[in-house]
Design a binder for these strands. Structure first.
Lengths: 199, 199
DNA sequence: CATGGGTGTGACCGGTCGGTAACAAGCAGA
DNA sequence: TCTGCTTGTTACCGACCGGTCACACCCATG
């Protein structure tokens, strides 16, 4: 029998463990706040194996950001599956889902945090971050337009800023800050774009 | 004649130069991205003098955050001087001023960036950041209430999140992102809280 | 001239950083 | 059994980190 399939707690590949350990440690310590040695140790492997899979720490950073991007993409798919052909319900579901994450994941958005932390221009992560954030906004705008809401560009930008702001507020001032009213703020913004009201 | 007053480009005190160099370098490289040696060199002094004024790098970080807080406080005073006894005009002035800073200062808020970057709990900067952000939100709420706008808590939180979100969006996706519509989003939010409309 | 506080200099400390070399061990398929 | 790829181990590299030491220096005051 193959060792990699002999039991439930089978060892995943060293590469996968490195990526998931890196995700977790970058979140809790910051990208610059954790060393590759600590990441390798947390992944129950060693630095040499890490460097065989990723040419540099920056490469590993980019890989973790890609993973985070993929997870976010899966959330959009889930939204579409739960409310097929109902863009308005998808928007409400998006708001509720983001509010839940806000409460359960106090660390904020990995991509946005990386953008703040990695100041060197030319860092390969920047293009990933830009692409990701632009894509998120685009999906939101498409949803707003499909739902027949007025000025979908402005509403999408408003919702994007509210979410981004709620996450950093959560980091800066904790639960009692503005983030506590994220959901209400979103609903108020959406209400202001309903056609029945003043266009 | 005293050396410190003999000409226009008189040397400021080493301490002041250290603080302003640290502010600039923390902004451009991140707090973890710049060393005390480089800060001292940029301030045209040396590491030993730096450590005579600040017991540690964390102390220096806190000092720069206090400077940034004081600058923000001065902006509120300026707002009150420009529009005395006119809270509504002060709100509009706040929106316009923040939009201007958004364009001219792409680095975002020093305090918020520090909150994202410094993950170690117990870091002395965290209490400064919390106090600062809470104070900013309180002043905004007071202004909304004085202007007779409905639900001033929600509006203050909304404006806070919009600003915070605009700044991090600016960092993540540049000028073409949601931050470009910060001003319009603020005005739409404020309009939704005017008593003449649906309470 | 003497004193003393703020400053400059350079070496130094232990530790950690990202990254590499060399070699042994395990394990797959042929 | 042989082969070849993936791993593990250890030591090492140069660079930099935050922080400290001892000592010389400048200069205003007395």
């Amino acid at each position: 029998m193959k060792k990699t399939a002999c039991n439930a707690e089978a060892k995943t590949s060293p590469r996968d463990r490195i990526v998931s350990s890196a995700c977790a440690l970058f979140r809790t310590h910051g990208i610059r706040g954790i060393g590759v040695d600590a990441i390798a140790q947390a992944a129950e492997t060693n630095k040499m194996t890490l460097y065989r899979h990723f040419g540099s720490k920056d490469d590993l950073v980019c890989e973790t950001l890609k993973v985070a991007s993929a997870q976010a993409a899966a959330l959009w798919d889930d939204l579409e599956n739960r409310f097929p052909d109902n863009p308005r319900a998808q928007i409400d579901g998006w708001v509720a889902g983001r509010a839940d994450c806000l409460a359960s994941e106090p660390h904020g958005c990995d991509l946005a945090n990386a953008a703040v932390e990695l100041k060197e221009d030319g860092h390969p992560a920047h293009v990933l971050i830009d692409r990701f954030k632009t894509e998120q906004r685009r999906r939101l705008e498409d949803l707003c337009r499909a739902a027949g809401l007025s000025d979908p560009e402005l509403l999408a930008d408003t919702l994007s800023m509210l979410l981004e702001g709620a996450r950093v507020s959560r980091i800066a001032t904790g639960d009692h800050g503005p983030a506590a009213r994220f959901e209400r703020a979103c609903h108020a913004a959406i209400a202001g774009h309903e056609r029945s009201k003043a266009g």
